[in-house]
C-alpha cells in the first residue's frame, strides 16, 4: 500500500504503524542538531554559498544562516504538529518532505556516507541507522510522487 495518495485538495496519509513511528523520531533527531564543527552532520547542513571566497562565504552565512535555521525549524514543527493527521495540506506535505530530507542527510553524515553506491555496502552492515535511512527514503519518494502530480 502506498503511504500517501492525492485526495482532492489534500494528501491522504496511509502510513503503516512502523512508518509513523519512524516519522515520530524525525523531529527528535533534528532538534538535537548541534553546532559542533566536528559533527559531520553539522558540517553537511551548514550553508556555504561561496566556495572560493571566504569573505563572501562569511557574508552569505551571516545573511542566510538565521533564515535557514528558522525555515528548517518551521518544517520540523509542522511535521510534529501534523504527524497524527490523516489528511495533509500540500504545503504541510512539503514541510514533511524537507524535514525527512534533512533527517536523511543528518543520519547519512553521521554514518560517514560520502560517495554514491553506499546502498550495497549498507545492506551488509545491517545497521539500524541504515534501516531508518531506507524507510525515510521510501517515505520521501512516495511524497515526491504525489506532490509531483500537483505541479
Amino acid at each position: 500500500m502506498y503511504p500517501f495518495m492525492n485526495s482532492g485538495g489534500h494528501i491522504a496519509v496511509l502510513l503503516a504503524p512502523a512508518e509513523r513511528e519512524v516519522l515520530r523520531a524525525v523531529p527528535i533527531l533534528l532538534r538535537n542538531r548541534s553546532a559542533d564543527p566536528g559533527d559531520p552532520a553539522w558540517a553537511r547542513l551548514r550553508a556555504v554559498g561561496h566556495l572560493d571566497d571566504p569573505d563572501a562565504a562569511d557574508r552569505f552565512g551571516d545573511l542566510t544562516a538565521g533564515m535557514l535555521e528558522s525555515a528548517l525549524t518551521g518544517d520540523r514543527d509542522r511535521l510534529e504538529e501534523t504527524l497524527e493527521d490523516d489528511l495533509l495540506d500540500p504545503a504541510d506535505a512539503e514541510c514533511w518532505l524537507r524535514a525527512i530530507g534533512e533527517a536523511r542527510l543528518k543520519v547519512a553524515a553521521r554514518l560517514g556516507i560520502e560517495e554514491d553506491g553506499w546502498e550495497g555496502e549498507a545492506v551488509e552492515a545491517e545497521l539500524v541507522e541504515i534501516t531508518v535511512l531506507r524507510m525515510l527514503g521510501f517515505l520521501q519518494e512516495s511524497l515526491v510522487a504525489v506532490l509531483s502530480e500537483r505541479i
Binding site: L97, G101, R104, L105, A108, I113, E114, E115, D116, G117, W118, G137, Q140, E141, V144, A145, L147, S148, I151
Partner: peptide, 12 residues
C-alpha cells in the same frame, strides 16, 4: 552531487 538526496527529490 551528493550521495544521499534521491534523484526523484532533486527533480521535484
Amino acid at each position: 552531487n551528493d550521495p544521499v538526496n534521491l534523484m526523484s527529490y532533486v527533480v521535484f
